[in-house]
Simulated assay, not measured.
Amino acid sequence: MRKKYSGIIFDFNGTLFFDTDKQTESWSVMAEKLRGCPVSDHEMATFIMGRPNKVTIEYLLGRPVSDEEGDRLVQEKEIIYRELCRRDACHVRLAPGAVELLDYVTDHHIACTIATGSEISNVNFYFEMFQLEKWFSFDKVVYDDGLLPGKPHPEIYIKSAENLGLTPEQCIVFEDADAGIEAARRANIGKIIAIGPQQVHGRLRELAGVQLVISTFTEFDREGLLAAG
């Protein structure tokens, strides 16, 4: 019998890499500059996490921005973010259990890729910092190229499945953000697994499409990936 699921699509920020603190700090620096006050945890969860950077810039400014202005402000934010990561390099690592899961997926020839709202400079940064080429083909990663609709639009997950040569129904998605979970649901992903700290599990379980909630990848039964459907 064929496996029920043949591929895995990982969100990156907040999923494979627990960087919410650095995202919040860098966006707060930008928010202070653009509107005079930092972002709240509610704003991060509702209006920022999983969404395209340009959309967040427009949210903070309260108005549309040109591509040129948006790109300039996004790059300013990402420089701040990457510097925060570099300063904390001794603590910057993939989420607990991620390396073991990725090694298992690679050893068992299970197709996988990344679907991220990050833009190319950050994707390059992550590949270098975490040596992601051990597990992922760069050319199959889907990221914010300025053309792809951002989450919660489903295109990012539809394209990711296509890059793996699979249908969305054949894929598992790991996501932490409300917008990303909704994108996966709209894409008809076969199984959506939400990841987040214990205190948000109740909220994540209530989101449409979520079939499992975990705190870290150590809680995920990777042996089940080989089970027949």
Rank of each mutant, 00 (worst) to 15 (best):
M1T: 14
K4D: 05
Y5L: 13
I9M: 07
F10I: 06
N13W: 11
L16F: 10
D19T: 04
S28I: 00
V29L: 08
V29R: 14
K33S: 08
K33M: 12
F47S: 02
G50F: 03
R51Q: 10
N53H: 11
E58L: 06
L60H: 02
V65R: 06
S66K: 08
D67F: 10
G70F: 07
V74F: 00
I80Q: 08
R82Y: 13
R86C: 11
V92A: 13
H108M: 11
A111C: 05
T113L: 01
T113R: 01
T116I: 09
T116D: 01
I120Q: 10
S121L: 13
S121Q: 14
N124A: 09
F127M: 04
Q131F: 02
K134Q: 15
W135K: 04
W135Y: 15
K140S: 10
D144R: 12
D144H: 12
G146M: 08
L147Y: 10
L148E: 02
H153Q: 12
E155I: 12
I156G: 02
Y157C: 06
Y157I: 11
I158H: 09
K159P: 00
E162P: 01
I172H: 01
F174V: 02
A177C: 03
E182T: 11
A183T: 01
A183L: 00
V200Q: 05
R203Y: 15
R205N: 12
E219A: 05
D221T: 13
R222H: 08
L225D: 14
